[in-house]
Simulated scan of single mutants.
Amino acid sequence: MTEEERGERIAKWLSRSGIASRRDAEQIIAQGRVKLNGQPVTHPATFVRKHDLVQLDNAPVAEPERTRMWRYHKPDGLMTTHKDPEGRKTVFESLPEGMPRVISIGRLDLNSEGLLLLTNDGELARRLELPSNGWIRRYRVRVFGVVDEARLAQLAEGSVFEGVKYGPIDAQLDSKKGDNAWLTVSLREGKNREVRKVMMGLNLHVSRLIRTNYGPFQLGTLLRGELEEVQSRIIRDQLPAAPTAKPATRKSRTGN
């Protein structure tokens, strides 16, 4: 049987449709939320063939497009999740009409802002989040407190705060005025709330956190709430394994 005749594993198919990463798609399947041609899917190794009907929570899922990616300037006050149990507004509710279903590559917490990459390919999102790809995430960080530059320099050797081990972090003092200072912080690992927790370990309170870079992609001149599709040529150059399709669209505003 050829690959076309056999089809594609449904967990991978769902991830390419922008539903979730393959790992999360497997969990969705285990929860009994997915149907194939009207029948519940019970195993992530189930195969989907062309023209099969896939449903999530009884709603049809569109067939995967080729890989697309967007740069988004996330404002603070938005959750990076598709649905917040506390009813707070999310990034995905703020996107322009006509956007395909997308997921984020990594996250920014409620009070963080700056560059957030979005893609319609869940498998790609998972791959680009892994520390093993070596991509640097860079932030502009405003802190309140007394900055000890010697302790900042020591972060480059790795650190441990409250029993959690963090990889090397490059932290540079850019400017200070009174008890407020701006830092540039670069890291490759990206644990949950890593910058805030490490700064807290240095007795510094983060009052503003702006991501400016994620690997080769930059926030650049995007305004708050602005969205711009990454050109297919750039995706091919930076992500040679990713198939691409439509040309990039111009910048659009999300209303934030």
Rank of each mutant, 00 (worst) to 15 (best):
P75S: 10
R71V: 08
N111A: 12
I103Y: 08
R88P: 01
S104W: 02
F92E: 02
S94K: 13
R101C: 04
P64Q: 08
F92Y: 09
M99N: 05
D121L: 06
K74A: 05
G87K: 04
M69D: 07
L117F: 01
I105C: 07
D57R: 11
H82V: 12
L108R: 02
V91A: 05
L110N: 07
L110H: 12
N120K: 10
P64M: 09
M69K: 07
I105N: 03
P85V: 04
L95N: 01
D84W: 11
D109N: 06
I103C: 14
P96K: 13
N120G: 09
E93D: 15
L117Q: 04
R66I: 09
S94L: 13
G98C: 08
M69N: 04
P96W: 14
M79S: 13
L118Q: 01
W70P: 02
R66W: 15
R101T: 04
L78Q: 02
R101V: 01
D121M: 06
T67P: 10
K74T: 09
S104I: 07
D109K: 06
D121S: 07
K74R: 06
V91K: 00
K89A: 15
H82I: 11
G106Q: 09
A62D: 14
G87F: 06
N58G: 12
E65G: 15
E63V: 14
G87E: 01
R68H: 12
A59P: 11
K74Q: 07
G106S: 09
G87S: 04
T119N: 03
L78M: 10
G87L: 05
R101Y: 05
M79T: 13
L95R: 00
G114V: 00
G106M: 10
V102I: 12
L116W: 01
P100R: 04
E93K: 10
G98R: 11
V91F: 04
R71L: 14
I103D: 12
L110I: 12
L110Q: 10
A62H: 14
D109H: 01
R66C: 12
D121P: 05
D121T: 03
N120M: 10
R107T: 10
N58F: 15
G77E: 02
G106V: 10
P85S: 05
T119C: 03
E93R: 07
T90Q: 05
D57L: 12
T67N: 11
R71S: 11
M79E: 14
P64T: 07
P64V: 10
R88D: 00
E113Q: 14
T119E: 03
R107H: 08
R88F: 02
F92L: 03
R107M: 08
S94F: 11
R88L: 03
H73G: 10
R88W: 01
V102P: 02
K89T: 14
L115H: 00
H73L: 08
E86I: 10
H73Y: 14
K74M: 07
E65C: 13
S112F: 00
K89N: 09
T81R: 09
G98P: 07
R107K: 09
V91Q: 00
R88N: 10
Y72Q: 07
E93F: 06
F92W: 04
R68Y: 09
M69T: 06
T80D: 11
D76L: 10
K83D: 15
N120Y: 04
R107W: 09
P75Q: 05
P75W: 03
L78E: 04
K89I: 11
L108D: 01
H73F: 13
P100T: 03
E97G: 14
E93T: 07
T90H: 03
P96H: 14
